[in-house]
Amino acid sequence: MIKKIYKLSGLHCTSCSMLIEGELEDQLGVRAACNWAKQVVEIEGEADHQMIVKVIEEQGYKVVGEA
């Protein structure tokens, strides 16, 4: 199982991490664990990089790089 970690910016509360997890899991069918304090999201499963960035940025957050 492929695991990727993305660094994010623009999260201002735990609600944001819940939102990101929800959208990634609902739209891409991956398993997502977003850590608000560290501002990273760990994604488990097959998903295209561009799609991941698109889903996250649609919610109003930035992907600043991969860890």
């Binding site: 509360c13 735990t14 819940m18 997890e21 929800g22 899991e25 664990a33 850590n35 608000w36 304090a37």
Partner: peptide, 13 residues
Amino acid sequence: RHFILQPPRFLTR
């Protein structure tokens, strides 16, 4: 950020 507690993932799911 650690002051704002993140609810457990099983709950949000």
